[in-house]
Simulated scan of single mutants.
Amino acid sequence: MASYFIVMARLFPILLLYLPTLIVGTTPPSYSGFNQVWADAFTYAAGVAPNSANWNIITGYLGVNAEWEEYTSSSANVQCSGGGTLQLVPWRDTSTTYGWTSGRVESKYTFTPTAGKVTRAEAEIRFGTNAIANKQGIWPAFWMLGDSLRHGGSWPACGELDAMETIDGVLTGYGTAHCGTYPGGVCNEGTGIQGRVAIPDQSWHVWRVEWDRTSNNWQTETIKWSLDGVVFQTITGSQLTQDTWTALCHSPVYFILNVAIGGTWPGYPNSATQDGYGSMMEIAYVSQYVQS
């Protein structure tokens, strides 16, 4: 019996290292002058999948960007924490083709930015606590695609708005618009129109995209990206063509949350890259608002 307690005492710190951190998630905030239209705060039991009425869990290899991950529906990769958050967790897995599994969810909900008003979409997100040196090849993202892609459309003509991407653990966030034709085109495909912002730390921050259609003139409408309410990227209709602006600002979109592994932009994991909760993306809520 004494030897049992000695073994457990030695194992206990290791077990704690691999347990998901349970943090009480944030209730989607209310904003003066805006009505909340849709939200998910992931207030479900620990270990369960997000609400299937709200989200599709994507599985398999998607064959994009030369990425390595196999997306799965396993709770190891996609789970609610029990503390009001969603966790998307990458793991090394030698049984897969490229040695990694990860999580990706896409909303069943779609919305079209409202004519004559401001529409706001945001998520509160934090990253796992692994050191930057141990996140080579890790690529979390919160973004939106045009719903036309689900109905026979093509990329990038469907439109894509990346509210937040960050690569390799480096504390820089990127907000990007993709549209039109590949390569080249008015959206500079394949790099898109991109802004960047310093991320203060790996803790909770609010990432937002805001469509301003109050002018009722496509050329003067804007799309803005912000971190914690501070705008770091703005594009205006007049920068593009009417058809590309229509795809980005006048057409239905859906939400995507994922953690990709490797690919042509971040490069690939190396021997120092750590998997698990320390390299996850954790989401407290996703919410959409329209100006009242």
Rank of each mutant, 00 (worst) to 15 (best):
T96V: 04
N56V: 09
T214L: 06
V197G: 10
I6T: 13
V290H: 05
T234D: 13
T273D: 07
V64A: 08
H178Q: 07
G185K: 01
R213H: 06
G99Q: 11
G146N: 04
T191A: 12
S251C: 03
T110M: 12
R10P: 04
L15Q: 01
C80P: 05
V78Y: 08
V197A: 12
T94L: 09
Y98I: 01
A115I: 00
P13E: 02
G63H: 02
S102A: 07
A39Y: 14
Q239L: 11
W55E: 05
V286C: 06
I138C: 06
A9P: 00
I193A: 08
T214W: 04
S74I: 03
T222N: 06
W155T: 03
R196N: 15
K117Q: 06
E70Y: 09
S279Y: 08
G84N: 04
G237I: 04
P50F: 15
K108W: 07
S81K: 00
R196E: 15
N56F: 13
E124Y: 14
L257A: 11
V105L: 14
W55D: 03
A157F: 02
H178N: 04
M1D: 15
C179I: 10
L161A: 12
Y254I: 06
T234E: 13
T244F: 06
L62C: 05
Y61L: 03
F142W: 12
L19Q: 15
V89T: 15
T264L: 10
A49Y: 13
T97C: 04
R92E: 14
V230G: 08
W155P: 05
A46Y: 11
T222L: 07
S73D: 15
G103S: 03
R120F: 12
R10I: 01
T72W: 15
D243T: 10
T119E: 05
T222Y: 09
M1G: 11
V197T: 14
A49M: 12
A272G: 14
V37L: 15
S238G: 13
T96Y: 10
L145R: 00
T244M: 05
S251F: 05
G82R: 01
V118L: 08
L62Y: 08
D243P: 00
N270Y: 05
G175E: 12
V170I: 14
V230W: 11
R213V: 03
L62S: 09
T236V: 09
E70C: 03
W225G: 00
I57P: 06
Q239C: 07
C158Q: 08
D212S: 02
L19W: 15
Q202K: 15
T27L: 12
R10Q: 02
T264A: 11
N134K: 03
T114F: 13
Y277H: 11
D162G: 10
Q36F: 11
S107K: 01
A133P: 01
